[in-house]
Amino acid sequence: MNNPVPDSSLKGMNRAVELAKFLASEPVRKVKLGQTPHAVIHRDRQARLRWFAPAEPKHAPLFISMPLINTWTVFDLMPGRSVVAALLDAGVPVYLLDWGSAGPEDADLTLGRVIDGTLVRALKRAKRHARATYGAEAIDALGYCVGGSFLSVCLSRHPGLARRMALLAAPIDFHASGRLATWADPETFPLDAIVDNLGNFPGALMKQSFAWLKPGGQTGKWWGLWERFEKPGFPELWTHLEAWSDAPTEFPGECYREYVRQCYFNNALVDGGWVLDGRPVDLKQGSIPALAIAASGDHICPSAAAFGLERAWGGPVETVTLRGGHVGVCIGQSLPKALIAWAEDA
């Protein structure tokens, strides 16, 4: 006798049961991110400089400036999906600046203090440590997202801190940032009201805003889990990504105010006219070789925004486009490959 229920429907039902069991076990809460062994070698308020040592150093050390929006663990999500671990395997010592999450006491932290203080100090400490440990006279620097935008400002104002600079999905031409640029309109975005009343820009609000940038993203996330649930390794990756995106960080209020006003409202990295702590911000003063990396499906920092570096930066600029989205690019295989090739190219 024929089975009245088609096989594909049975398969679907089985999958639904397995998926329900999986979600009921609260996998996201059990996940541990950032598991690659490392040491914290410097602290500055909430920021931590994390040192990852390779078994056999072969290349110049790499300093990484992470964004202030999420935790650093997107670069060390899970075994096999870790930019940091891939760099260590290739013999690149890594110094990663994790900005942490701002507390209420950090609301008055200015962008000048963040760039000329925390970032410069972390770069100097990384350089000092690299010289003492590896005998390295120079280090390379990589900035991701807003961490990259800040790094470019820093290296244009403080030459000699890094030998080369790479920016990953880091907006420079902010007016080319797509929907985010449309939303960051001084007429409609209540920037001052947010900072004056809340102190810091809340991580939860940031997470919500990013979710609304791509309205299909939330349903797509669940559909992706349903469709690929049986694919080996996918539920683990989904869980780790979910755990990472569930932990947004607070952005220091005063720093956020100046960042949005100068970068999003005035597009000052391209158009100029920004004076930070009494000194003009001028990326044309930057002279070291730079690499701008964009992700092909990035809706937060489209390639036009990232490649604005070509027009703004004083030194030679190369551009590369990798497959993936703003976050997806960090968990794919193409980013470690590109960074290792860049390290070998020195």
């Binding site: 024929n2 088609p6 096989d7 594909s8 429907s9 398969k11 679907g12 469709e227």
Partner: peptide
């Protein structure tokens, strides 16, 4: 044989 067709593809 399968009146629902490929359920996965359809959904």
């Amino acid at each position: 044989s399968n009146p629902f067709g490929d359920f996965d593809k359809l959904s």
